[in-house]
């Protein structure tokens, strides 16, 4: 079996000022089965090329929405992309089977640390709960939705900590693309960060 192909849809309106995302992206392995798509660079005027995006989706097995977690959600271009590309009759609805059995997940960066996203904490909901719209969107498209990979508390992360997280991101991408990977293996984790940290092969 060949490697699973990964499409990273990256969206940051101020990438030039995002230290954490620069580090994360620098750790994405430069391999032919991993495609990074910089949405704000491709569509500064929000005029998403639907046909091209559909073609890219068709060519990949795993869709990653990589973005900062602004106001408990993604930046607007992600929403624009979802609204325009996931067409009725193509992604969902009668005959809408183009994405069937693909995998999807969110990779997010947030200023707030992991512990403020809890029922008894300041943000009152978990990250996974905030991501519910994505989960349901992909479910409607018959896509298996995986737990998120999150880089949190970014304002307080030291450069070395950030580098370590970047390495985790790299490892995540490589493990996801292994031919034998099954989504059943990760469903129970709250964050994929935990799966990577707990994995026996970890060096």
């Amino acid at each position: 079996m060949s490697l699973k192909k990964i499409l990273i849809l990256f969206a940051h309106p101020r990438y030039e000022q995002s230290r954490s995302n620069r580090v994360l992206l620098s750790h994405v392995p430069r391999r032919s089965h991993i495609t990074v798509r910089d949405l704000y660079e491709a569509y500064p005027d929000f005029d998403v090329d639907i046909d091209h995006e559909k073609e890219l989706l068709a060519q990949h097995d795993i869709i990653i929405l990589h973005h900062p977690f602004y106001w408990y959600h993604a930046p607007p271009l992600i929403k624009q992309w979802i609204d325009m590309v996931l067409e009725f009759g193509w992604a969902y609805g009668p005959g809408g089977n183009a994405l069937k059995d693909k995998l999807a997940l969110n990779v997010i960066t947030s200023g707030g640390a992991r512990d403020v996203y809890a029922h008894d904490a300041r943000n009152r909901f978990t990250v996974r709960e905030f991501l519910a719209p994505f989960e349901q969107t992909f479910r409607l498209c018959q896509v298996h939705y995986l737990p998120p990979f999150a880089v949190q508390g970014t304002h307080r992360l030291a450069d070395a900590e950030l580098e370590a997280l970047g390495a985790q991101y790299c490892e995540l991408l490589l493990k996801l693309s292994e031919p034998g990977f099954s989504h059943d293996a990760v469903n129970d984790y709250e964050f994929l960060n935990d799966w990577i940290l707990n994995s026996p092969e970890k060096t």
Partner: peptide
Amino acid sequence: RDATKSKPRKDNENR
């Protein structure tokens, strides 16, 4: 980031 550095941890961290 500048703001969080100078203040206690609780403010402005929702982003």
